[in-house]
Design a protein around this nucleic acid. Structure first.
Length: 373
DNA sequence: AACACGGGGAC
DNA sequence: GTCCCAGTGTT
Protein backbone atom coordinates (compact mmCIF):
# COMPACT_ATOMS: atom_id res chain seq x y z
CA UNK A 1 0.00 0.00 0.00
CA UNK A 2 1.39 3.34 -1.00
CA UNK A 3 2.11 5.81 1.75
CA UNK A 4 -0.48 8.59 1.64
CA UNK A 5 0.94 11.84 0.39
CA UNK A 6 1.65 14.44 3.05
CA UNK A 7 0.77 17.19 0.63
CA UNK A 8 -2.46 19.03 0.97
CA UNK A 9 -4.96 17.63 -1.51
CA UNK A 10 -6.35 21.07 -2.37
CA UNK A 11 -5.36 22.68 -5.67
CA UNK A 12 -2.94 25.61 -5.66
CA UNK A 13 -4.46 28.74 -4.20
CA UNK A 14 -4.87 31.76 -6.47
CA UNK A 15 -2.01 34.25 -6.36
CA UNK A 16 -2.15 36.30 -3.20
CA UNK A 17 -0.04 39.40 -3.20
CA UNK A 18 -1.18 41.19 -0.06
CA UNK A 19 2.10 40.44 1.67
CA UNK A 20 4.05 42.36 -0.94
CA UNK A 21 2.33 45.54 0.20
CA UNK A 22 3.64 45.25 3.72
CA UNK A 23 3.82 48.59 5.48
CA UNK A 24 6.56 48.24 8.06
CA UNK A 25 5.83 51.49 9.89
CA UNK A 26 2.31 50.48 10.90
CA UNK A 27 3.66 47.39 12.64
CA UNK A 28 7.00 48.42 14.11
CA UNK A 29 6.07 51.23 16.48
CA UNK A 30 3.15 49.59 18.29
CA UNK A 31 4.97 46.26 18.40
CA UNK A 32 8.14 47.74 19.92
CA UNK A 33 6.10 49.72 22.44
CA UNK A 34 4.31 46.53 23.42
CA UNK A 35 7.61 44.65 23.71
CA UNK A 36 9.19 47.24 25.97
CA UNK A 37 6.21 46.94 28.29
CA UNK A 38 5.41 43.22 28.21
CA UNK A 39 8.61 41.30 27.43
CA UNK A 40 9.58 38.46 29.74
CA UNK A 41 12.80 38.75 31.68
CA UNK A 42 14.96 35.82 30.60
CA UNK A 43 18.44 34.87 31.83
CA UNK A 44 20.03 35.50 28.43
CA UNK A 45 18.02 38.57 27.48
CA UNK A 46 19.27 42.17 27.65
CA UNK A 47 17.06 45.15 28.43
CA UNK A 48 15.33 46.57 25.33
CA UNK A 49 17.67 48.99 23.58
CA UNK A 50 20.77 47.06 24.68
CA UNK A 51 22.79 44.32 23.03
CA UNK A 52 22.90 40.83 24.51
CA UNK A 53 26.02 39.00 25.67
CA UNK A 54 27.01 37.14 22.47
CA UNK A 55 27.95 33.91 24.24
CA UNK A 56 24.73 33.86 26.22
CA UNK A 57 22.68 34.72 23.17
CA UNK A 58 24.35 31.99 21.13
CA UNK A 59 23.92 29.37 23.84
CA UNK A 60 20.27 30.27 24.29
CA UNK A 61 19.59 30.01 20.57
CA UNK A 62 21.18 26.56 20.47
CA UNK A 63 19.10 25.38 23.41
CA UNK A 64 15.90 26.98 22.13
CA UNK A 65 15.91 25.14 18.80
CA UNK A 66 12.62 23.23 18.78
CA UNK A 67 12.51 23.65 22.54
CA UNK A 68 10.28 25.89 24.63
CA UNK A 69 11.61 28.72 26.79
CA UNK A 70 10.22 27.17 29.97
CA UNK A 71 12.26 24.01 29.36
CA UNK A 72 15.46 25.85 28.53
CA UNK A 73 15.81 28.20 31.51
CA UNK A 74 17.10 25.64 34.03
CA UNK A 75 19.47 24.09 31.47
CA UNK A 76 20.83 27.53 30.57
CA UNK A 77 21.51 28.35 34.24
CA UNK A 78 23.33 25.08 34.88
CA UNK A 79 25.31 25.37 31.65
CA UNK A 80 26.54 28.92 32.25
CA UNK A 81 27.39 28.03 35.85
CA UNK A 82 29.61 25.22 34.58
CA UNK A 83 30.98 27.16 31.58
CA UNK A 84 30.76 30.90 32.30
CA UNK A 85 32.59 31.89 29.12
CA UNK A 86 33.10 30.70 25.58
CA UNK A 87 36.72 29.88 26.46
CA UNK A 88 35.55 27.64 29.31
CA UNK A 89 33.27 25.80 26.92
CA UNK A 90 36.04 25.38 24.36
CA UNK A 91 38.33 23.86 26.99
CA UNK A 92 35.72 21.37 28.20
CA UNK A 93 35.48 17.72 27.18
CA UNK A 94 32.61 16.90 24.83
CA UNK A 95 31.31 14.37 27.34
CA UNK A 96 30.87 17.00 30.03
CA UNK A 97 29.03 19.22 27.56
CA UNK A 98 26.69 16.35 26.72
CA UNK A 99 26.20 15.74 30.43
CA UNK A 100 24.82 19.25 30.81
CA UNK A 101 22.61 18.72 27.76
CA UNK A 102 21.29 15.40 29.09
CA UNK A 103 17.50 15.32 28.89
CA UNK A 104 17.21 18.32 26.59
CA UNK A 105 17.21 16.28 23.38
CA UNK A 106 18.64 16.92 19.92
CA UNK A 107 22.10 16.15 21.29
CA UNK A 108 23.82 17.12 18.08
CA UNK A 109 23.18 20.70 19.16
CA UNK A 110 25.52 20.22 22.11
CA UNK A 111 28.24 18.63 20.02
CA UNK A 112 27.99 21.34 17.37
CA UNK A 113 28.07 24.04 20.04
CA UNK A 114 31.22 22.56 21.51
CA UNK A 115 32.88 22.16 18.12
CA UNK A 116 31.97 25.73 17.22
CA UNK A 117 33.41 27.04 20.49
CA UNK A 118 36.69 25.34 19.69
CA UNK A 119 36.61 26.75 16.16
CA UNK A 120 36.06 30.26 17.52
CA UNK A 121 38.99 29.84 19.89
CA UNK A 122 41.21 28.48 17.13
CA UNK A 123 40.21 30.70 14.20
CA UNK A 124 38.60 33.86 15.58
CA UNK A 125 40.78 34.70 18.58
CA UNK A 126 38.03 33.62 20.94
CA UNK A 127 35.53 36.18 19.65
CA UNK A 128 32.24 35.01 18.17
CA UNK A 129 31.96 36.36 14.60
CA UNK A 130 29.79 39.50 14.54
CA UNK A 131 28.37 39.10 11.02
CA UNK A 132 25.61 36.92 9.63
CA UNK A 133 28.00 35.17 7.22
CA UNK A 134 30.65 34.60 9.86
CA UNK A 135 28.13 33.08 12.24
CA UNK A 136 26.51 30.98 9.54
CA UNK A 137 29.84 29.28 8.87
CA UNK A 138 29.93 27.77 12.35
CA UNK A 139 28.53 24.27 12.98
CA UNK A 140 25.02 24.29 14.44
CA UNK A 141 24.35 27.90 13.42
CA UNK A 142 21.90 28.05 10.54
CA UNK A 143 20.01 30.86 8.90
CA UNK A 144 17.77 31.52 11.88
CA UNK A 145 20.45 31.47 14.57
CA UNK A 146 22.88 33.55 12.51
CA UNK A 147 20.19 36.18 12.03
CA UNK A 148 19.18 36.08 15.69
CA UNK A 149 22.70 36.39 17.08
CA UNK A 150 23.73 39.04 14.53
CA UNK A 151 20.73 41.20 15.35
CA UNK A 152 20.29 40.58 19.08
CA UNK A 153 23.94 40.48 20.17
CA UNK A 154 25.58 42.65 17.49
CA UNK A 155 22.86 45.04 16.33
CA UNK A 156 23.01 44.00 12.68
CA UNK A 157 19.93 44.45 10.53
CA UNK A 158 19.30 40.75 9.87
CA UNK A 159 15.88 39.07 9.74
CA UNK A 160 14.82 35.92 11.57
CA UNK A 161 12.11 33.40 10.79
CA UNK A 162 11.38 30.78 13.41
CA UNK A 163 8.12 29.04 14.26
CA UNK A 164 6.79 32.12 16.04
CA UNK A 165 7.69 34.53 13.26
CA UNK A 166 6.19 32.23 10.63
CA UNK A 167 2.90 32.10 12.51
CA UNK A 168 2.79 35.85 13.18
CA UNK A 169 3.59 36.72 9.56
CA UNK A 170 1.11 34.16 8.22
CA UNK A 171 -1.58 35.95 10.22
CA UNK A 172 -0.48 39.52 9.62
CA UNK A 173 -0.50 38.91 5.88
CA UNK A 174 -3.17 36.19 5.72
CA UNK A 175 -0.87 33.67 4.07
CA UNK A 176 -3.01 30.60 3.49
CA UNK A 177 -0.39 28.34 1.95
CA UNK A 178 1.43 25.89 4.28
CA UNK A 179 4.15 27.85 6.09
CA UNK A 180 6.47 24.86 6.15
CA UNK A 181 6.56 24.59 2.36
CA UNK A 182 10.01 25.73 1.22
CA UNK A 183 8.68 28.25 -1.28
CA UNK A 184 6.46 29.86 1.35
CA UNK A 185 9.30 29.76 3.83
CA UNK A 186 11.38 31.75 1.35
CA UNK A 187 8.63 34.37 1.08
CA UNK A 188 8.53 34.66 4.86
CA UNK A 189 12.25 35.36 4.92
CA UNK A 190 11.85 38.10 2.30
CA UNK A 191 8.98 39.55 4.29
CA UNK A 192 11.00 39.48 7.52
CA UNK A 193 13.90 41.11 5.69
CA UNK A 194 11.54 43.85 4.53
CA UNK A 195 10.17 44.46 8.02
CA UNK A 196 13.25 44.42 10.25
CA UNK A 197 14.39 47.99 11.00
CA UNK A 198 17.96 49.31 11.00
CA UNK A 199 17.49 50.72 14.50
CA UNK A 200 17.16 48.09 17.23
CA UNK A 201 16.73 45.14 14.85
CA UNK A 202 17.28 42.74 17.73
CA UNK A 203 14.44 44.24 19.72
CA UNK A 204 12.17 44.03 16.72
CA UNK A 205 13.03 40.39 16.06
CA UNK A 206 12.55 39.50 19.70
CA UNK A 207 9.30 41.46 19.76
CA UNK A 208 7.83 39.42 16.90
CA UNK A 209 8.87 36.19 18.59
CA UNK A 210 7.61 37.36 21.97
CA UNK A 211 4.29 38.32 20.42
CA UNK A 212 4.08 34.84 18.93
CA UNK A 213 4.81 33.24 22.31
CA UNK A 214 2.49 35.39 24.44
CA UNK A 215 -0.30 36.79 22.21
CA UNK A 216 -0.28 35.37 18.70
CA UNK A 217 -0.30 31.80 20.02
CA UNK A 218 -0.93 28.68 17.92
CA UNK A 219 -4.32 28.09 19.53
CA UNK A 220 -6.75 30.77 20.70
CA UNK A 221 -4.71 33.82 19.64
CA UNK A 222 -5.43 36.77 21.92
CA UNK A 223 -6.35 39.19 19.15
CA UNK A 224 -8.35 41.36 21.57
CA UNK A 225 -5.17 42.41 23.36
CA UNK A 226 -2.84 42.33 20.35
CA UNK A 227 -0.97 45.60 19.81
CA UNK A 228 -1.00 45.18 16.04
CA UNK A 229 -4.48 43.70 15.56
CA UNK A 230 -5.46 46.74 13.51
CA UNK A 231 -2.78 45.91 10.94
CA UNK A 232 -3.47 42.15 10.88
CA UNK A 233 -5.20 40.83 7.77
CA UNK A 234 -6.14 37.50 9.35
CA UNK A 235 -7.80 39.37 12.21
CA UNK A 236 -9.74 41.54 9.78
CA UNK A 237 -10.82 38.47 7.84
CA UNK A 238 -11.67 36.53 11.00
CA UNK A 239 -9.34 33.65 10.10
CA UNK A 240 -6.53 34.11 12.64
CA UNK A 241 -7.65 31.00 14.50
CA UNK A 242 -7.10 28.71 11.51
CA UNK A 243 -3.76 30.16 10.40
CA UNK A 244 -1.07 29.18 9.81
CA UNK A 245 -1.69 26.11 7.67
CA UNK A 246 0.89 23.35 8.00
CA UNK A 247 1.66 20.19 6.10
CA UNK A 248 0.48 17.23 8.23
CA UNK A 249 3.15 15.31 10.08
CA UNK A 250 3.93 11.73 9.29
CA UNK A 251 3.05 9.23 12.02
CA UNK A 252 5.94 7.86 14.08
CA UNK A 253 7.16 4.39 13.18
CA UNK A 254 6.95 1.65 15.81
CA UNK A 255 10.06 -0.05 17.18
CA UNK A 256 11.05 -2.37 20.00
CA UNK A 257 14.34 -1.89 21.85
CA UNK A 258 15.74 -4.49 24.24
CA UNK A 259 18.01 -3.02 26.92
CA UNK A 260 20.38 -5.32 28.74
CA UNK A 261 21.93 -4.55 32.12
CA UNK A 262 25.07 -6.67 32.33
CA UNK A 263 26.42 -6.79 35.89
CA UNK A 264 29.76 -8.03 37.13
CA UNK A 265 31.00 -7.69 40.72
CA UNK A 266 28.71 -4.79 41.53
CA UNK A 267 29.44 -2.94 38.31
CA UNK A 268 27.32 -2.50 35.19
CA UNK A 269 28.34 -2.21 31.55
CA UNK A 270 27.76 1.01 29.61
CA UNK A 271 28.67 1.62 25.98
CA UNK A 272 28.77 4.75 23.84
CA UNK A 273 26.40 5.18 20.93
CA UNK A 274 27.76 5.86 17.45
CA UNK A 275 28.72 9.29 16.18
CA UNK A 276 25.54 9.71 14.16
CA UNK A 277 21.87 9.01 14.36
CA UNK A 278 19.59 8.70 17.37
CA UNK A 279 21.18 9.74 20.70
CA UNK A 280 24.56 10.04 18.96
CA UNK A 281 27.49 10.26 21.34
CA UNK A 282 25.35 9.42 24.36
CA UNK A 283 25.91 6.33 26.53
CA UNK A 284 23.60 3.42 27.20
CA UNK A 285 23.35 -0.10 28.46
CA UNK A 286 23.83 -2.45 25.49
CA UNK A 287 20.63 -2.30 23.46
CA UNK A 288 19.22 -4.39 20.63
CA UNK A 289 17.16 -2.11 18.39
CA UNK A 290 15.85 -4.67 15.95
CA UNK A 291 15.38 -8.34 16.69
CA UNK A 292 15.51 -10.20 13.39
CA UNK A 293 12.51 -12.27 12.41
CA UNK A 294 12.58 -15.78 13.86
CA UNK A 295 15.24 -14.86 16.43
CA UNK A 296 14.49 -14.96 20.13
CA UNK A 297 15.19 -11.70 22.01
CA UNK A 298 17.31 -13.64 24.50
CA UNK A 299 19.48 -14.98 21.69
CA UNK A 300 19.84 -11.50 20.23
CA UNK A 301 21.01 -10.23 23.63
CA UNK A 302 23.56 -13.03 23.94
CA UNK A 303 24.87 -12.11 20.49
CA UNK A 304 25.05 -8.47 21.57
CA UNK A 305 27.23 -9.40 24.56
CA UNK A 306 29.33 -11.70 22.41
CA UNK A 307 29.95 -8.84 19.99
CA UNK A 308 31.49 -6.95 22.93
CA UNK A 309 33.64 -9.98 23.73
CA UNK A 310 31.86 -11.14 26.86
CA UNK A 311 29.66 -14.06 27.88
CA UNK A 312 26.52 -13.77 29.96
CA UNK A 313 24.11 -16.08 31.72
CA UNK A 314 20.47 -16.23 30.67
CA UNK A 315 18.92 -12.71 30.65
CA UNK A 316 15.91 -12.21 32.92
CA UNK A 317 13.12 -9.87 31.95
CA UNK A 318 12.87 -6.95 34.38
CA UNK A 319 10.15 -4.74 32.94
CA UNK A 320 9.01 -2.62 30.00
CA UNK A 321 7.78 0.84 29.10
CA UNK A 322 6.98 3.03 26.08
CA UNK A 323 9.02 5.98 24.87
CA UNK A 324 8.06 8.59 22.27
CA UNK A 325 10.27 10.66 20.03
CA UNK A 326 9.11 12.78 17.12
CA UNK A 327 9.70 10.01 14.61
CA UNK A 328 9.51 6.82 16.65
CA UNK A 329 7.24 5.06 19.13
CA UNK A 330 9.59 2.75 20.95
CA UNK A 331 8.59 -0.08 23.23
CA UNK A 332 11.49 -0.71 25.60
CA UNK A 333 12.01 -4.11 27.21
CA UNK A 334 14.53 -4.17 30.06
CA UNK A 335 16.61 -7.26 30.84
CA UNK A 336 19.26 -8.19 33.37
CA UNK A 337 22.11 -10.71 33.13
CA UNK A 338 25.41 -11.54 34.79
CA UNK A 339 28.73 -11.43 33.03
CA UNK A 340 30.26 -14.92 33.22
CA UNK A 341 33.54 -14.29 31.46
CA UNK A 342 35.27 -13.00 28.39
CA UNK A 343 37.26 -9.85 27.73
CA UNK A 344 35.38 -6.59 27.13
CA UNK A 345 36.01 -4.66 23.92
CA UNK A 346 34.86 -1.05 24.25
CA UNK A 347 32.60 0.24 26.98
CA UNK A 348 32.95 1.08 30.62
CA UNK A 349 32.02 -0.59 33.90
CA UNK A 350 30.32 1.64 36.43
CA UNK A 351 28.73 1.13 39.82
CA UNK A 352 25.01 1.85 39.21
CA UNK A 353 25.12 4.71 41.72
CA UNK A 354 28.20 6.30 40.14
CA UNK A 355 27.32 7.04 36.54
CA UNK A 356 27.16 10.82 36.80
CA UNK A 357 29.95 11.21 34.25
CA UNK A 358 28.03 9.36 31.53
CA UNK A 359 25.42 11.28 29.52
CA UNK A 360 22.38 9.04 29.09
CA UNK A 361 19.21 9.55 27.04
CA UNK A 362 15.98 9.65 29.02
CA UNK A 363 14.77 6.10 28.27
CA UNK A 364 18.09 4.71 29.54
CA UNK A 365 17.63 6.59 32.79
CA UNK A 366 14.15 5.17 33.02
CA UNK A 367 15.47 1.66 32.43
CA UNK A 368 17.99 2.18 35.24
CA UNK A 369 15.21 3.21 37.63
CA UNK A 370 13.37 0.04 36.71
CA UNK A 371 16.44 -2.03 37.53
CA UNK A 372 16.75 -0.54 41.01
CA UNK A 373 13.32 -1.68 42.15
C1' DA B 1 12.47 18.48 -1.24
C1' DA B 2 12.18 15.14 2.30
C1' DC B 3 13.87 13.42 6.27
C1' DA B 4 15.99 12.53 10.91
C1' DC B 5 16.89 14.34 15.13
C1' DG B 6 14.37 14.27 21.68
C1' DG B 7 11.76 15.69 24.86
C1' DG B 8 8.14 18.09 26.99
C1' DG B 9 4.73 21.99 27.65
C1' DA B 10 0.01 23.24 26.72
C1' DC B 11 -4.42 21.97 25.59
C1' DG C 1 -4.35 11.78 22.84
C1' DT C 2 -2.62 16.21 19.51
C1' DC C 3 0.21 20.06 18.24
C1' DC C 4 4.32 22.31 18.13
C1' DC C 5 8.28 24.50 20.22
C1' DA C 6 13.44 31.14 19.30
C1' DG C 7 16.03 24.77 13.60
C1' DT C 8 20.05 22.34 11.55
C1' DG C 9 22.35 19.04 8.76
C1' DT C 10 22.14 15.19 5.64
C1' DT C 11 20.54 12.72 1.76
Amino acid sequence: MARPSRRRPTPPAPPRRAWTRAKPAALRAPLLAWYREHHRKLPWRAEPGKLANPYHEWLSEAMLQQTQVATVIAYFERFTAAFPTLADLARAEEQSVLRLWQGLGYYRRARNLHAAARAVEANHAGRLPDTFEGLLALPGIGRYSAGAIASIAFGRRTPVVDGNVARVLARWFAIEEPVDAPAVRERLWRLAEHLVPARHPGDFNQAVMELGALVCTPKSPKCLVCPVAAACRANKMGIAERLPVRVPRRKPTAAEHHVLAIDRRGERLFVQRPDRGLWSGMWEMPTVEAVAAGVDAVEALRALAAARGIMIDKPARVGEFDHQTTHRSIHFVVWRARCTGGRLRGGAWRRPGKIDDLPLPNPQRRALEMLEE
